[in-house]
Structure formats: structure tokens, C-alpha cells
Design a protein around this nucleic acid. Sequence first.
DNA 1: CCAATGCAACTGACTAGTTATTTGCTAGCC
DNA 2: GGCTAGCAAATAACTAGTCAGTTGCATTGG
Lengths: 185, 185
Amino acid sequence: MIKNSEKTKARLLEAATAEFAEFGIAGARIDRIAKVAGTNKAMIYAYFGSKDELFDTVFSTHVGSTLERVDFDVGDLAGYAGRLFDWFEDDPGALRLSTWYRLERPTGVGLQAVVLINKVRMERLERAQRDGALPKQFDPIQLLSLIQAIATSWATTNPELGVAATTDRNYRRQTVVDAVQRLLT
Amino acid sequence: MIKNSEKTKARLLEAATAEFAEFGIAGARIDRIAKVAGTNKAMIYAYFGSKDELFDTVFSTHVGSTLERVDFDVGDLAGYAGRLFDWFEDDPGALRLSTWYRLERPTGVGLQAVVLINKVRMERLERAQRDGALPKQFDPIQLLSLIQAIATSWATTNPELGVAATTDRNYRRQTVVDAVQRLLT
DNA sequence: CCAATGCAACTGACTAGTTATTTGCTAGCC
DNA sequence: GGCTAGCAAATAACTAGTCAGTTGCATTGG
């Protein structure tokens, strides 16, 4: 047994991220998280309080902070969509966590960080439209909504369309970029 | 106690639809379903076999059969998107059920019906493109994926954008229709 | 017409196993 | 030595699934 508060906490958080991404809040099992983290259940309660609080922590550290790191360029929204696509491709857990959150925590406050980021981005879109740097056929809120939906379109509709998981990633990425480009012309 | 196999089954299915839409598979409670249906747990097992099978029945009767009824007009894909939007607005449970399915049943076969419907629609898109009735900038599979994503964009991004639930429905619908229209011009 | 019979629909209580959370104690570290 | 990190085991509540028995209804034989 090695004692290291920080590392144990980190391992728990990592294990919890995987567990919640896979099974959601109701489906996640505290035992499994503890076991994967190579420690025990009581540590979870010592460090995070409860299952729900653990989920909240997982969500804000994993999703909120990552979204912030996706470069947002008002002059190249198609590129932004492409980068969003890349993020969700490289880290499918992030998208799943967001989806679980929406379903299981309809009134949760954990999305607040995400809402804030989007608010800033909307203001930048607004300014770009006023400066004439961005066409005005869609309002900022419409743009963000559409871009987000398009960037995640493959992830959310793959199963329904019977798309093999092997469908070329570049092809899918290009679809996203092209679609957003077309909205703006 | 009134005995009526058909009606009891129907009440159970209705209660189960609401329960699964709200809580997902892992979060749904058999007891709650039975109670809401005004009957007994054992009836669920007599009629549907298990919790999982009950979910499957709920999904295919509620989602599969409804998607089929959304008119698909290759000559008016924007209108199709609008009708999809209407469906999910009028019956938010349908979208939630689909989302739960994707998250909790990654390898389930219940989506088969949906996959089939989409396959037929893709073939119709293909033919329309060959006949020159539909522009070719996107492949059929890209079109279906994008249309589906755009039609549900508000439902899936509302929370992240901090959109009040009161945002005008017509405004949201028009966004969907306009976006799809723009993809095709 | 009507009572006895058969049977499917129904029920409440039960079980066996899980689950989140707590506790009392041990082991490492300054 | 004392404080923090860590643990195994206990607990209390819950959950999917079962079962032995009951109830209403239709059928049938008189």
C-alpha cells in the first residue's frame, strides 16, 4: 500500500470517467470504479462525497475544461466544426458523458460551465455579424446549435443508419466541414 | 379487479414507455411501472418476459412504428426535416428513448427496424440523384445523417446553450427547415 | 337456466442478490 | 506519537424476478 492522496484521487477520477461514460449515472457501479482504480469504495466517499457528486466532478473536469480548449475562430466556423468532430472522435466518452448528463440530470447545474463558454462564443458571433465579417442568415444561437449538431451528427446517427464503424473518418469529417461551410454561403 | 389481458398489457406498455423515456433502462423501476399501470409486477414478467424485453417492446412499438409514419419526400427534404422536428417536439419521449437505446444498448438489434426504414430512404435519395432531381453535393448517407442531426439539433443542444424552454417553437422549426434547404442549394 | 368445473388473469408476499454508504480498525509517513 | 491515507467488513435499503395461492369469467353438463 502506497499512500498518496493526489494519485489515488486521480486514479479514481479516471476510473469514474470511464465508468460513467459507459454506463451513465444509474448504471455506474461504485464497486467497479474502486476496483479499476485499484483502491476501495470508502475512498470515493472520502474524496468525492457521493456517487452524484463524483459524477459532477467527472463531468466538469472532463467535459467543461476540454470544450474550452477547442479553438473557436469566428472567421472559420467550418474549421471549428471540424475540430469539434475531432474531439468527439478522439474521446467518445466526452460525448457520452454530455448525453448522459442531459438525460439523467435535466436540471443539473454542472452544465453551467458549458453554457458560459457558449455564451462567450455567441457574443463573438454577434460582433462578427455586426462587423460584416460573418453572413447574417442565421442568428448566433442558431449557428452554435447547428454547428454542434452537425459536428456530432455521425456519432449520434451512426447506429440508426447502420453505418459500419469502419466508415472512413476523413469522409465523415469532410461531411461536417462541408455542411457548415454551406450554411454560411 | 377487472380481468382484461389486452387492456392490462396496454396499460403496462404505456406506463413502461413513460418510465423508460424518463429514466432509461438502468434507471427504470419495475415496481413503479406496475404501480402506475395499476397492476402487479408479475404481470410484466408474464407478458413481457424481462425488463430488457419490455424495453425492446416499448422501443419498437413506440419509436420504430412512428418513424415510419413520417412522410419522406425526396423532392422536399427540408419539409421532411420539419416533420421530424415536429415529431420530436410533440413527443419528446421518442427522442429520449432513442438516445437511451444508443447509450445503453450499443449492440442491440431493436434498431433494426429503424435501420431498414433509413435504408429504403437512402435508396430513394440515390435514385433521385441519378435522375437529376436532387443535387449531388452530399451522398444519401450524408444527407440522412445531416438531416436527422439538424432536425434534433435544438432538442440536443438546448441545455448546453442555456436556451429557455420558451424559445419560440416556430423560430426553432424554421431554423431546421432553412438549414436543410441551404444544404441543397 | 344454473351450478360445477377449468383456466387464464391477477395478486401480495417472498427471495436472493445488489447497491450505495458507513464504520472501526490498520498501516504508512512526518 | 499523532495524523492522514487506506482498507475489509458490515449495514440498511433496494431491486429484479418468483411463487403459491386467489379471483373473475366462460364453458359445459344436467
